[in-house]
Amino acid sequence: MKCQALVIVVAILLGTFIQSASADDIRPAYLELSEISPDRFQVLWKVPAKGNAQRLALGVKFDSQTRILNEPVDGYIGSAHLQRWAIERSGGLTGQAIHIEGLEKIATEVLLRIEYLDGRTSINRVTPDAPIHVVTAPPGMIETIKTYFTLGVEHILIGFDHLLFVLVLMILVPNLRKLVLTITAFTIAHSITLSLAALSVIRVPVPPVEACIALSIVFVSTEIIRSQRGNPGIAEQHPWLVAFTFGLLHGLGFAAALERIGLPQTDIPAALLFFNVGVEIGQLAFVAILLLLGRLMKNYFRILPIMTRGVPAYIAGSLAAFWTIERTVAFWN
């Protein structure tokens, strides 16, 4: 189990480095339309940017029936360029064709959120393959469940730090029964804090949480190396306790992503539940794929030199240490 992680970790880290190198191209843009009175909407348009001179070349174009009520007010906040303005469309947004100009040329997507006066919320993704989105009637319960379940699955599968933490847990715990208990503890913990933070019961600044999530990977990687040297620590002796403790932090990270999306006021329990379910399904799929690959390739890994056993932990720990420093510097600046 420990050796099988070598190729898998390298593949994941290569994907991560590729993702990091082109992060400005694939970070999603965000378009929010909030109904402020019948037929009138406040527009928030958020585009990834690097400084005042660099931003993704994306724009929003509404159909000819839409009237712009004021000139956009814009500015840079963090790593994003924001614009705000108001629009009016007789009869509301149903049937409105929203064109994200330039999207077909950029490897990213746009998250479109529409919030109505009665509390109903619509969440949609606009992709390069379909840069024009036609607004439909406000969604019902089934549409909300499908949307938030899909968002949950997608979030965990592109959350490289969360997946890397699960991976180092799998390297640490080769016994399948103990692994199931460890992953279960991690799941319970991050479900608790995800729910509490999403419902605003607890509020924690996001940047320190992200730095601590990276630090959790460093800690478990260090514990793996200690164990391989014959000096097992608390993580190997009580892996479920470590997984539960750090799972609380990871849940706050999931909640930060959900906060950016928002919850529909009319279907909060269903949206929260199925976002959480989506996260768990994505996580279980990741674990299942690793276990299957390990079973298929176990004969190959038997011939690897024993000195290579620590390579996955060193790679994972080094990348996580870089993330820790990068994220710490970012929130202090």
Score class of each variant (00 low, 15 high):
154 E>G: 07
177 R>F: 11
331 F>N: 12
117 L>S: 14
314 Y>E: 05
282 G>N: 02
146 K>R: 11
123 I>H: 04
46 K>R: 15
98 I>C: 07
227 S>E: 10
16 T>R: 08
60 V>K: 00
92 G>I: 06
218 V>Y: 09
291 L>N: 03
248 L>Y: 10
305 P>M: 01
232 P>D: 04
292 L>H: 05
50 K>N: 13
319 L>H: 04
221 S>N: 10
116 Y>H: 14
39 D>H: 07
283 Q>T: 04
109 E>W: 08
129 D>Q: 12
24 D>M: 14
288 A>N: 08
240 W>Q: 13
117 L>I: 07
223 E>K: 07
241 L>Y: 00
87 I>A: 09
325 I>S: 07
271 A>V: 01
97 A>M: 12
249 L>I: 12
145 I>M: 08
300 Y>Q: 07
77 I>G: 03
297 M>L: 15
16 T>M: 11
2 K>T: 13
95 G>F: 07
67 R>N: 12
220 V>D: 05
324 T>S: 14
245 T>R: 07
172 L>I: 02
71 E>W: 00
174 P>E: 12
190 H>I: 06
174 P>F: 13
178 K>W: 11
11 A>K: 10
249 L>F: 14
62 F>M: 13
151 L>F: 12
110 V>Q: 01
117 L>W: 03
177 R>D: 10
162 H>N: 09
147 T>Y: 07
279 V>I: 15
193 T>Q: 06
200 S>K: 11
303 I>L: 10
325 I>H: 02
180 V>G: 03
140 G>R: 00
184 T>G: 06
116 Y>T: 04
210 E>Q: 12
115 E>Y: 02
105 K>L: 02
237 Q>N: 10
169 L>T: 01
212 C>K: 00
279 V>W: 08
107 A>H: 08
3 C>S: 11
314 Y>H: 12
207 P>V: 12
147 T>G: 08
21 A>R: 09
155 H>N: 13
26 I>F: 10
47 V>I: 15
36 I>E: 14
322 F>Y: 15
34 S>T: 13
309 R>Q: 14
24 D>R: 13
8 I>N: 03
168 V>N: 03
241 L>N: 00
126 V>G: 01
14 L>N: 05
72 P>F: 02
83 Q>A: 15
123 I>G: 00
177 R>E: 11
289 I>H: 00
225 I>E: 11
215 L>N: 02
14 L>A: 14
245 T>D: 06
45 W>C: 07
325 I>R: 01
146 K>A: 14
269 P>W: 07
317 G>M: 05
276 N>G: 10
124 N>G: 05
151 L>D: 03
147 T>L: 04
119 G>C: 06
308 T>R: 06
198 A>F: 07
5 A>E: 04
315 I>F: 13
130 A>V: 04
90 S>I: 12
188 I>S: 05
246 F>H: 05
52 N>Y: 02
10 V>K: 10
167 L>Y: 05
295 R>A: 11
274 F>N: 10
160 F>T: 07
17 F>N: 01
61 K>Q: 14
275 F>Y: 13
239 P>F: 01
213 I>H: 02
269 P>V: 05
307 M>P: 02
305 P>V: 00
242 V>E: 00
232 P>S: 03
286 F>N: 09
286 F>R: 09
283 Q>D: 08
93 L>K: 06
147 T>M: 05
113 R>M: 13
301 F>W: 14
